[in-house]
Design a protein around this nucleic acid. Structure first.
Lengths: 346, 346
DNA sequence: TAGGTTCCTGAAACCGGTTTCTTGAGACCG
DNA sequence: CGGTCTCAAGAAACCGGTTTCAGGAACCTA
């Protein structure tokens, strides 16, 4: 803690005024005569007095901070998320408390601790039990990201339905027939929604229903594993693969190239995220761009607002980005493609 | 805040005991008769009482939290750093408060705010002015990362001297003659140290002194810019390039490949970090592995300790990792090369 | 049985600001 | 000149726990 000597009463004594006056001067909350204000200011500056955070927070009944709960910092998605959240919170003068679940089981308990130290909490899907989200929502403001809202908390997500648009693009424009999906729907609500959009597009276009998803995680290494499962098996390999995110897509591409296959000639690959690397690889990665930073800032803004007056679900739009990996012509980097065949998905 | 009704006095009243007894039961700090303990526990559980953080912190004069100040979340380096720090702090029961400088000028003020809310602060080089570090050090425990210790604060860094070993490897084993350095020494103490090690290796081996560094930032895009500067100029291009980190090295490789050059035949490239991508690209990136996670955990551990008893500077060892991009044979991924020619650098 | 320990418990002070309540002084008005 | 109104500023209560201190009861020993 430190300079425990320098507190309101001490400053008051030095300046020959009451603690109340010091408080009024330091926070500028009420009129103080120029003379006393001057006296108090001099003592404050001379001794570098700063009001103790606890005392102030205790009296104001407000923390001035927001919590952010997320699974882990793998890949650019969460980096961008944290960056955006922190940036927005800084803007409004809030501090950010971080809690990474690391997929551990004692996260719920940590969340309860955290809840006692923040005014609001952003919770990313797949980190905290529904029951705990519900419970915490009754104490402080809660916004979940990439998940559904509940009775007492709001939500912000990006539209996974665009995977349907992308899937139709592969089926209709390019005429691929054996599509595979890489990702574990049970793993997160995001992947669930993408898998469902993938299925729906097959149904809508009358395409042959695809096989079950290739169950792997979301890291680049998981893409390599998926390549092994899909390309080294006895069965006929797919001619196009829709991956749950860009990282697995890149891992898959590396795996395919390593086996002497060409992308997209022998196998087309798509991702989700539009992370920076997607535009830099050869061929460029066809993917869905989601506004991660906006996801974070919108969440932070909701949390800062004094009360959540039925904010419900916020859905941010996403866009198909066509590059070389699906069979489209690869544009020079810097350009970005936008899908023409809109509609269909909410 | 919430259940303001449920506080020590209220619980005490319900259980028919004094607030002191409730405190003793809730924190288990002293002996309480089984009967009273039982009565109090029942009320606590029934109404979900949790001691208010402010009240407790105020009385204990301790925050139970650590601050982490870093420039921004670009690339895997800072992801790993935050992850490691958060993970270690969680272990010891501390909360983590994040402050990203975004290279803004008002960071010093934010740091002062933060200092009032944490027991200790980890500051990454290049974010906070020396004067402010000094000032904050007098209030709370401070550890700087990738920088030098000061009179009142400790430091933890990774050894940049290994760049010297790597440079000698390029000069002596491979016989390259026109080496270039990509990175801005003034930009950060890390890059400064790497540049100096690069120079020192030239001097030691009697090689022709290199030209000045190619001044760019640390992102992948900066590597592309460096490629432009180095390869599109009138002068003879270098035959080997030592980059300040892996990201610029990858950007440079992409730039070289895009110009029809071969790596390492036409130009050798090395990085620093050994980020995951380094082992996955073709050819594999020769680089220096630095233990980023350890950097973070050691820092967190130092901060948790009650007092910094002259911890001074901690230097973590780094290793050269030889892969294909410098001209060495590319090993199958999974294997890692360790440099044989040790010594020389502290 | 007196005296000394040991163990439990509650009263009260304390951590450091903020805010309400109250008082006193000075200004304004009839 | 008396009364009211306004405004500055201090006293005290309050936010919610923790801890010291002191007292009382039970237990032990001589």
């Amino acid at each position: 803690m430190s300079n425990s000597r320098v507190n309101v009463r001490w400053v008051a004594e030095q300046a020959g005024v009451s603690p109340a006056t010091v408080s009024r001067v330091s926070r500028g909350s009420a009129q103080v005569s120029p003379e006393l204000r001057e006296r108090v200011m001099r003592v404050i500056e001379e001794h570098g007095y700063r009001p103790n955070h606890f005392g102030r927070a205790l009296a104001e009944k407000r923390h001035g901070s927001l919590g952010l709960v997320f699974p882990g910092l793998s890949g650019p998605y969460f980096s961008e998320l944290i960056q955006g959240f922190e940036s927005e919170a800084l803007e409004t003068g809030d501090q950010v408390l971080l809690l990474s679940s690391h997929y551990r089981s004692d996260t719920d308990a940590k969340v309860l601790d955290l809840a006692g130290r923040v005014d609001g909490m952003a919770i990313h899907a797949g980190t905290v039990s529904e029951a705990m989200i519900e419970r915490v929502s009754q104490t402080i403001r809660v916004v979940v990201m990439a998940h559904k809202a509940g009775p007492a908390h709001a939500s912000v997500s990006t539209d996974s339905g665009t995977v349907g648009t992308l899937t139709r693009h592969l089926l209709v424009e390019h005429g691929y027939r054996r599509l595979a999906f890489v990702g574990t729907p049970e793993g997160s609500p995001d992947v669930t929604a993408r898998w469902e959009a993938f299925l729906a597009a097959h149904a809508e276009t009358g395409a042959r229903p695809p096989a079950g998803p290739t169950l792997v995680g979301l890291a680049q290494a998981d893409g390599a594993i998926a390549a092994q499962k899909l390309l080294d098996s006895e069965e006929e390999p797919p001619d196009a693969v829709v991956c749950a995110n860009d990282e697995t897509a890149l891992g898959l591409i590396l795996g395919a190239l390593g086996r002497g296959m060409r992308v997209p000639e022998d196998i087309a690959v798509t991702g989700f995220d539009d992370m920076p690397m997607a535009a830099l690889v050869q061929p460029g990665l066809t993917t869905v761009r989601q506004p991660v930073r906006e996801l974070a800032t919108v969440t932070a803004r909701l949390l800062h607002a004094p009360l959540t007056q039925r904010d419900g679900d916020t859905l941010l739009t996403t866009d198909v980005v066509l590059r070389g990996s699906c069979g489209c012509p690869d544009r020079p980097s810097g350009e970005t493609g936008r899908d023409a065949t809109a509609g269909g998905d909410s």
